[in-house]
Simulated scan of single mutants.
Amino acid sequence: MSGSLEIKPIGIVVGGRAEPTDDHWGGHAIIRLNSDYPVEVVQGLEEFSHLLVVWHFHKASPDDVALHARSPRNNPAWPSTGTFVHRNHRRPNQLGQSFPRLLKVDGLDLHVADLDAIDGTPVYDVAPYFQQMGPRGEVRQPTWPGEMLGDYWAKDSE
């Protein structure tokens, strides 16, 4: 393996939810890109409906990392699965990714809906979502993610 990589935030989440919770995500927020970037960095982005956003679970502690198997949300009804089967802050680099809807671009402010990161979250990358780079072939998963995430999105966020 190669050495570590140092990356710096390209922006920050402004607005939206103030504290993380498991369910009922939705609503609007702004991804405010660094003010020292030229506005051309977002030229053409408004033509896309969705983004891929990489961000940091900044309220998590390195002590939260859990390199072992456990049941999702500690629910014994769901199977014990390893760290890389979960999509939460207990991962080694504590990075998250989201696919919010892009509502509008206003200078270096990206207005989005359904970003499951909270106010103040450092953003490390933003890219448009390309359908052609999405999953190929049939997507499969066990039943427990559907059961667990049935209330992940707020009813009014569609």
Rank of each mutant, 00 (worst) to 15 (best):
Arg17His: 08
Arg136Val: 11
Trp55Lys: 04
Leu95Ile: 02
His89Lys: 15
Val105Tyr: 02
Val54Trp: 00
Pro100His: 02
Asp23Trp: 11
Leu51Val: 05
Asp125Pro: 00
Val105Gly: 02
Ser35Thr: 11
Glu6Ala: 12
Ala29Met: 06
Tyr152Glu: 07
Arg136Ala: 13
Leu108Ser: 04
Val54Phe: 05
Ser35Phe: 09
Asn74Ile: 09
Phe57Met: 03
Ser157Ala: 12
Val39Met: 10
Arg90Ile: 07
Asp64Pro: 06
Phe130Val: 09
Ser2Gly: 12
Asp151His: 12
His68Glu: 13
Gly120Phe: 00
Asp109Val: 01
Thr83His: 14
Asn74Asp: 15
Pro9Ile: 01
Asn93Asp: 08
Met133Phe: 14
Arg70Cys: 09
Pro79Cys: 08
Lys155Thr: 14
Asp114Ala: 13
Lys155Glu: 15
Gly44Asp: 04
Leu52Trp: 12
Val14Pro: 01
Asp22Ala: 11
Asp114Phe: 05
Gly27Arg: 04
Leu108Ala: 02
Val85Gln: 14
Arg17Gly: 04
Val123Phe: 04
Ala117Gln: 03
Ser71Phe: 09
Val42Arg: 06
Gly137Ser: 05
Ser4Glu: 12
Pro92Leu: 07
Gly137Met: 07
Lys155Ser: 14
Lys155Cys: 09
Lys8Gly: 08
Ala66Asn: 10
Ala113Ser: 11
Ala18Phe: 09
Val14His: 02
Leu149Glu: 08
Pro76Gln: 12
Arg17Phe: 05
Tyr37Cys: 09
Tyr37Gln: 08
Val41Thr: 10
Trp153Asn: 04
Phe48Leu: 07
Glu47Asp: 14
Val105Leu: 01
Gly16Cys: 04
Ser49His: 10
His56Thr: 00
Thr143Glu: 14
Val41Arg: 10
Asp151Thr: 12
Gly96Leu: 00
Asp156Ser: 08
Glu147Asp: 11
Gly107Leu: 03
Pro100Glu: 04
Trp153Met: 05
Leu149Arg: 10
Tyr152Asn: 06
Tyr152Trp: 10
Val42Cys: 02
Arg140Thr: 15
Pro142Lys: 11
Ser157Asp: 00
Val39Leu: 12
Ile30Trp: 04
Pro72Gln: 09
Leu115Tyr: 03
